[in-house]
Nucleic acid binder design. Structure first.
Lengths: 212, 212
DNA sequence: CAAAAAACTCGACCGCGGTCGAAATTAACT
DNA sequence: AGTTAATTTCGACCGCGGTCGAGTTTTTTG
C-alpha cells in the first residue's frame, strides 16, 4: 500500500529531468552522456532506463518541461488585433526562435517530433497537437471575422501552416536561410501564398488542362 | 601523375557503396555495422572514413545511387495531360512510395535531408534541389497553360508543395496516416488548399482585421 | 634510381548508448 | 517478528560509430 515506492519513483524521475535540464543546458545533448546524467541525478546508469526508454526520451521530457509552459498561452500573447498573416508569422517565428535558440537542440527536437522512430512513445505527438491547437485558435478567430473562407478544413489548415514552418526549419538547417530576418521573410512569403492560393484570378481547379 | 591512385580510389569508393547496397538491403541500415561494410567491401574499417565522413553519408550515397536515376525523368513520366493537381499528387506519391518502401530507410533519409547535422556535406541539398526542379517544371508548364497565376514565385511555389509533402511524411511516421490511400487523400487535400488559397471569395490579404 | 614527401590503409582503441542479471530494497503474508 | 515474493537499483559488460598514429604504398624530387 504505502506510497513510499511511488513517491520515490516520482522523485527519481524528476531528479533525472532536473539533471537533464542542467547538463543539456550546459554541455548540450550530445555532449552529455547518460552516465553523466546518472551521476548528476545520483542514480545508477541502468536505473535511468527504468524511467525512459532511451536517451531521446529524456530529451523529449526535457523539452516538454520547457515547452508546455509556452504553448498554452502562446496564441494569447500574439497581438489579437494584428492582421492574420502577421499573427501567424509572429506565432511561428516565436516557436522558431525558441526551437533554434540552441541549434543542436532544435534539430534533435524536430527530428524526433516530425519523424520519430517506432520506439518513441506518443509524447512527441502530444507536443505538436498542442501547438496545432494554438494555430487553429488563430484561424478560427480569423474565420469568425470573415478573413478566411467558410469551407476551410479546420484540421488541414493548421497542418498546412505547420508544414510551411517545417520547411522553413529545414531551410535553416540546410543553410539556405541564415538569420531570423530571412526566415521571417520566407515564412511570410509562404504563408501569403497559402492564404492567397496559386490560381489565376477566376481560375477553377476542376478545369482540365488542355492544349498539348 | 599516373592515375593508379585515382582509379583505386574510385574503385574502393564504389566497392563500399556496392557493399552498402547489398548489406543495407539485406539487414537494414541499423542492422549493418561499419565493420560489416568494411569486411564486405574488403577494406579496413578506418579506410571507410577516408571516403565518407560518417555512416549516414554512406547511406546518402546509397540513396543517391537509387534516386538520381529516378529524378531526372521523373516529371516526364507523369501524364502530362492530367490536371495539375493530379500531376502533383502523382509526382509526390511516387516519391512518397519510394521513400517509405522501407520504413527505416525513409526515416533516416528524410531526417538527413531535411534536418542535417553540420557534419553532413551538401549531398542532401543536391538531392532535394533536383527534386524541386522536377516540381518546378510541372508548375512552369501549368503556368504556361494559364492554370497558375502569373506572379507566382517560382522558387517558393515548389518549396510550398515540398513542405506539404514533408508534413504528410511526418504524419506517416507519427502514425496519423497508415496507408497510401490515406496519404494520397491528405496530400490531395493540402495541395488543393495550396492552389485554391484560404481566403474568402473577393477577400483581400492587405485588409486589416477589425471587429474586436 | 634513390630518397624524401605525400597519400592512403588499417585495426587497436575510445567513449557512448543500451542490456542484463545479481544484489538490494520494499511489499505481502503468516 | 520472520519469510517469501515482487520491484527496483546498479555497474560490469556488449556492440557500435568513430579516431588515431604506426605502417604501407604511391608520387614527387634531385
Amino acid at each position: 500500500m504505502s506510497g513510499i515506492r511511488a513517491k520515490k519513483k516520482r522523485e527519481t524521475r524528476s531528479a533525472i529531468i532536473e539533471a537533464a535540464i542542467r547538463l543539456f543546458g550546459e554541455k548540450g545533448f550530445e555532449g552529455t552522456s547518460v552516465e553523466d546524467l546518472a551521476r548528476e541525478a545520483g542514480v545508477g546508469k541502468g536505473t535511468i532506463y527504468g524511467y525512459f526508454q532511451n536517451k531521446n526520451e529524456i530529451f523529449l521530457a526535457f523539452c516538454e518541461e520547457e515547452l508546455e509552459i509556452t504553448y498554452g498561452a502562446l496564441h494569447e500573447e500574439i497581438d489579437p488585433e494584428a492582421r492574420l498573416l502577421d499573427r501567424l508569422v509572429a506565432l511561428f517565428m516565436r516557436q522558431f526562435r525558441f526551437v533554434t535558440e540552441n541549434r543542436e537542440f532544435g534539430r534533435i527536437l524536430i527530428r524526433e517530433m516530425a519523424f520519430p522512430p517506432e520506439t518513441t512513445s506518443g509524447k512527441s505527438r502530444e507536443l505538436d497537437a498542442s501547438f496545432l491547437e494554438a494555430v487553429a485558435k488563430i484561424l478560427l478567430k480569423a474565420q469568425g471575422r470573415g478573413d478566411l473562407k467558410i469551407g476551410l478544413d479546420t484540421f488541414l489548415a493548421p497542418v498546412h501552416f505547420y508544414a510551411l514552418y517545417l520547411v522553413a526549419l529545414s531551410g535553416w538547417y540546410n543553410g539556405y536561410v541564415e538569420n531570423y530576418m530571412e526566415v521571417e521573410m520566407s515564412l511570410r512569403g509562404l504563408f501569403r501564398q497559402a492564404l492567397e492560393g496559386m490560381m489565376p484570378p477566376g481560375g477553377e481547379i476542376t478545369v482540365l488542362g488542355e492544349s498539348a
